[in-house]
Amino acid sequence: MTDPAATKHGPGRILIAVYGVFALAATARAGVQIATKFTDAPIAYLLSAVAAIIYCAATFALAKATKVSRKVATTAIVIELIGVLAIGAFSYAAPDDFPDATVWSHFGQGYGFVPVVLPVLGLLWLRRTR
């Protein structure tokens, strides 16, 4: 397929819907954490905010589905994959540094492990619609 708009149609519709849910969830979570108790765990909450930005970027880039936005989406999703794997591993290795969970803590356990599966599906879908 050469049409970049293919990214937002078909199964991509469901993928983007799931991304949208995570964009909203991560943004709301980070917003509340930073607004109400930032000093409790600043690093964890900043990482929450980074995750929120990544999810929003991936959602809008996938939904826009142009040649350029596909590149933005790929970059965002690669960062997302690295983030969930790194923070997932780190939160098991040093649980004391994560007194309050981020979306990516424990590989997204609090979200049914969807956060660790989603970037893989996202990259597969971008490849499939290339």
Binding site: H9, G12, R13, I14, I16, A17, G20
Partner: peptide
Amino acid sequence: ILPVGAFWALAESSRWGAGALAIA
């Protein structure tokens, strides 16, 4: 969730629109 989901789903002219709405 539901208004955005419905908007997103209605703009799709295939079965996947209903699938996206199921997620919402």
